[in-house]
Design a protein around this nucleic acid. Structure first.
Length: 652
RNA sequence: GUGCCUGUAGCUCAGCGGAUAGAGCACCUGCCUCCUAAGCAGGGGGUCGUGGGUUCAAGUCCCGCCAGGCACACCA
């Protein structure tokens, strides 16, 4: 399709030169899609550009240009200043998905990092937004035939996990064996850990003396070779397994789990630190100086225009106690992703996962792998970390890695907050503790683990699942449990994904349970239902012994001249798929893709209502319609799956 | 203080400088003997926060203002 449009542009450019003697380069010509289907399959407003050069009336120009002859175009209509193109329907198979995948993009590897949930808490709806946006980006890139590696970074060091260990060992007095038993008892181990993590925070507040356990524990974990370290490893592994399971339920998968502890042990930081020093990018704040940063190695950014006006433009890289800051770890990791470090991890399979996934390792006998070395890196991280992402990028630039700095893309999006209406309902149900009245006057509140303001991903998915089961039960009384669960799972997952994806990235999602649980209107199930309806028609045809023409060029040439406009208009929407996906990626706006799929569904529902297929009396026309439905069904199903990981249930 | 984001229908939100400003929800009216209504058709409902500017054309671009949110740690 893209090649075809390029050829059109060249033709249009030549024609303009021939008529007016003015040159409008083919790159300047924009071929777009008209706002309404009856206006054709493609459109251009090139007349305005010509008008600018010649001073002629744009509508006149459009009229002159409508005499063009373009490849596979059956009719060109001028409507006011616009030129509308109507494509030869019998040629659609050349441009329809599955497209001939001949792009030369395979050599390039793109790395997408998303999800990144700390292994001390359960996934909440904020993490869902991250994972769903990240996964849709990954799917879109793969759809356009890019080679993509998905990484889910695990921050298993630092106080987060240590606090859970303190909770088990010191607050609850459990040893490793007992913790393992606890894990076997509770399938929702992540939720249990979140709970005790929150309790241990209070435990610290109640008696400051308890804080000493945090540092003792941190020290023991760092030193290694003891049961405390073993417990920390056990907890983070199990937590990660829980997170992977939650995301797997949404059809979201990863290729590699880089563990922060491995980054530290592999010496990435030291290598990066040396390079930074060599480039003179770091400055040591000497102990003699009366500076609050004395004893630290800092990145001086105050001279940098980008960072003007900051309160404090010096970022600590190495703390005065000799440990690396988040910035330092992140920069080292980012460098590794681009293959800029000499050092590399070892790799081994991560067990406890329903599909094949690797984790980083520092064990000498684990294998070498072909991870990292990307040419472009997308980091899916919410907008609150923009500042740090900017510094990481600047770090690459300072080190002279201009290309890598430019190829480091922060996919930033707004947070998920809780709508106060929802919070009020939860307070009434006793699920959330009472909070300040003043706070409740705002439209939404940021989630906070400390205040207990959060909504757990698995709980939401469960509510959706149960609701779907009820709806299914109302429609089909005698359905076996397995089939019912399978359908409910697909419906719940799509409802959740669409709910998140329909928002643009800069819009704060003020989470509201009622709209999240909706299956009507602009929702995932609505989209799935369009697919189900197309299958219903085909099934009915089969039951009645009506022949559905096979999808091939011969049949299309034979039947499509009989095709009604309504059918064609839906197929015409399919022609835009690669352009829509590309636009989504260029703008990092996944809602474009989601809403486009909703638009297609809407046209099909409309068609289903308006156009009888099986009941069509004219056999020729019926064959054409059935061929259309068959194409719709196939393409729609594969596009939904590939772009959003949404599967269509057998029936709804 | 500096920077980023948001402001469009009662509510939640779409709207890459171009065709009559849209969708979903909510409300009202119709449509199940039909390819199952998780659907369809129709209706009411808008000074696109505000004041300037650029343009043949501005909800969209530029500047100012107002209102909300976020970020700027030896936390990640």
């Amino acid at each position: 399709m893209r090649d075809l449009l390029e050829r059109w542009k060249r033709e249009i450019s030549l024609k303009i030169e021939k008529i007016y003697g003015e040159k409008v380069k083919s790159e300047e010509i924009i071929i777009d899609f008209p706002p309404k289907a009856e206006l054709g399959d493609a459109t251009t407003n090139v007349s305005f550009a010509v008008s600018k050069k010649t001073g002629k009336n744009p509508s006149e120009i459009a009229k002159d240009l409508s005499s063009l002859k373009l490849e596979n175009v059956i009719k060109i209509e001028n409507r006011g200043p616009y030129l509308n193109f109507f494509i030869d329907r019998t040629k659609i198979l050349n441009y329809l998905y599955p497209f001939s995948k001949k792009d030369k993009r395979r050599n390039e590897k793109i790395i997408v990092e998303h999800t990144n949930i700390n292994p001390n808490k359960s996934a909440h709806i904020g993490h869902l937004r991250n994972a769903i946006l990240g996964d849709t980006l990954v799917r879109s890139l793969r759809f356009l035939d890019y080679n993509v590696e998905v990484q889910n970074y695990i921050d298993d060091t630092g106080v987060q996990v240590a606090d859970v260990v303190v909770a088990f060992e010191k607050m609850l007095g459990l040893n490793l064996k007992e913790v393992k038993e606890k894990e076997r008892e509770r399938r929702d181990f992540d939720i249990y850990c979140s709970e005790i993590y929150s309790k241990v925070q209070k435990w610290y507040e109640d008696d400051e003396k308890n804080l000493k356990y945090r540092y003792e524990t941190l020290h023991l974990i760092e030193k290694g070779g003891n049961e405390t370290e073993q417990m920390a490893i056990f907890i983070s592994q199990k937590m990660v397994a829980c997170h992977l399971r939650t995301m797997f339920n949404l059809n979201i998968k990863y290729n590699l789990l880089p563990f922060e502890s491995d980054i530290l042990k592999s010496g990435f930081f030291e290598e990066c630190f040396e390079m930074m020093k060599e480039r003179g990018a770091l400055e040591y704040v000497s102990d003699e100086k009366d500076d609050k940063l004395k004893g630290c190695w800092v990145m001086r950014l105050s001279q940098n225009k980008e960072f003007e006006g900051l309160k404090d433009a010096d970022k600590v890289f190495l703390r005065s106690n000799g440990t690396a800051t988040y910035l330092a770890k992140d920069l080292s990791y980012q460098m590794w992703k681009f293959g800029l470090l000499k050092k590399d991890f070892h790799y081994r399979k991560f067990e406890n996962c329903p599909y094949e996934i690797y984790r980083t390792s520092t064990r000498e006998n684990d294998s070498k792998g072909n991870f990292g070395k990307g040419s472009k890196v997308y980091n899916v991280i919410d907008v609150r970390q923009s500042y740090l992402q900017k510094i990481v990028k600047e770090g690459l630039r300072i080190l002279g890695f201009e290309r890598e700095a430019d190829s480091s893309i922060h996919f930033s999006y707004e947070m998920v907050a809780l709508s106060t209406n929802f919070i009020k309902e939860e307070i009434e149900k006793g699920k959330i503790e009472k909070i300040d009245e003043e706070e409740l006057k705002k439209p939404f509140l940021e989630m906070s683990g400390r205040k207990g303001l959060s909504f757990i991903a698995d709980h939401l998915l469960n509510e959706l699942f149960e609701r779907a089961k009820i709806e299914i039960g109302q429609r089909e009384k005698e359905l076996d449990e397995d089939e019912k669960c399978d359908r409910a799972k697909k419906i719940a997952s799509s409802a959740l994904k669409y709910y998140i994806l329909k928002f643009t990235k800069n819009q704060i999602v003020a989470f509201d349970l009622k709209s999240a649980l909706s299956f009507d209107g602009e929702t995932g199930p609505y989209i799935q239902y369009a697919g189900v309806r197309s299958m219903n028609i085909l099934r009915k045809a089969d039951e009645k012994g009506i022949d559905v023409p096979e999808i091939n060029e011969e049949n299309i040439e034979k039947h499509f001249p009989e095709l009604d406009d309504e059918s064609w208009q839906i197929l015409s929407l399919f022609l835009r798929i690669p352009f829509v996906v590309e636009k989504g990626i260029d703008n990092l706006e996944m809602s474009i893709i989601a809403r486009y799929l909703f638009e297609i569904s809407k046209s099909f529902h409309n068609y289903y209502q308006k156009v009888p297929v099986i009941a069509e009396e004219n056999e020729e026309k019926r064959a054409a319609k059935l061929l259309f439905v068959s194409i719709f069904s196939k393409v729609f199903k594969s596009v939904l799956d590939e772009l959003m990981g949404i599967e269509i249930p057998k029936r709804m």
